[in-house]
C-alpha cells in the first residue's frame, strides 16, 4: 500500500542505549531534587519574581528534557516515521493553546469594576475597584465578613 512500500524491518533499540537513557534520567532527577533543596538559600538575594522565574525554568526545563528522552528513546519515536513524530508532538503543542486563558486571567484586573467586592472568601480572579469620582452614583459598599466568623 502507498505509504509503506519500503519494507523496513523494525528497529531494535540496543540495551546500551536504554541504559544510558536511564542513567540520564536518574541524573536529571537528582539534579532537579538537589536544586529544589538549595534553591531557597541560593536565591535568597534575588528578587522573588526573578527567583520564581529561575525556579520554574530549571524545574520545567529538566522535566522537559526528561520527557523528550523518554519519548525519543524509550518510546522509540526517534526511530519512527515522521507522521508518528508529528502525532507525538501534537498533544503537547495543542496543550499550549490553553494558555490563551491567560489573556483573560492576566487582564481581568485591568478592568476596574465599581464597588467590586472580592466576595466572602476572596474570589479567585479579582478585579480592581474603580476609584470614586465626583458625580458618580454612590456605590454600595458590602462589608466583607471575617474569614473566621
Amino acid at each position: 500500500m502507498s505509504e509503506h512500500a519500503h519494507e523496513h524491518s523494525h528497529h531494535i533499540t540496543p540495551i546500551s542505549t536504554l541504559v544510558k537513557t536511564l542513567l540520564l534520567l536518574g541524573v536529571l532527577m537528582v539534579t532537579t531534587i538537589a536544586w529544589a533543596q538549595i534553591a531557597p538559600s541560593a536565591l535568597k538575594d534575588v528578587p522573588p519574581a526573578l527567583a520564581s522565574l529561575i525556579n520554574n525554568l530549571i524545574a520545567m526545563g529538566i522535566a522537559f528534557i526528561k520527557a523528550v528522552a523518554v519519548i525519543m528513546i524509550f518510546m522509540g519515536v526517534k526511530y519512527q516515521s515522521s507522521i508518528v513524530k508529528l502525532y507525538a508532538a501534537l498533544g503537547f503543542l495543542w496543550f499550549t493553546l490553553m494558555f490563551i486563558m491567560f489573556a483573560d486571567y492576566g487582564t481581568r484586573h485591568w478592568e476596574a469594576v465599581r464597588g467590586w467586592t472580592p466576595g466572602v472568601k476572596q474570589m479567585a480572579m479579582p478585579r480592581a475597584d474603580e476609584p470614586y469620582e465626583e458625580g458618580m452614583p454612590p456605590r454600595k459598599d458590602i462589608k466583607i465578613p471575617d474569614e473566621h466568623h
Partner: peptide, 21 residues
C-alpha cells in the same frame, strides 16, 4: 476552531481584552 472558544463567554466575567481577541 481551537482559538475562538471565548466568543461564548463574552458576558461571563471573562475580561474584555480577551473578548476582543
Amino acid at each position: 476552531s481551537f482559538i475562538v472558544w471565548g466568543h461564548h463567554m463574552f458576558v461571563s466575567s471573562q475580561s474584555m481584552y480577551q473578548g476582543i481577541f
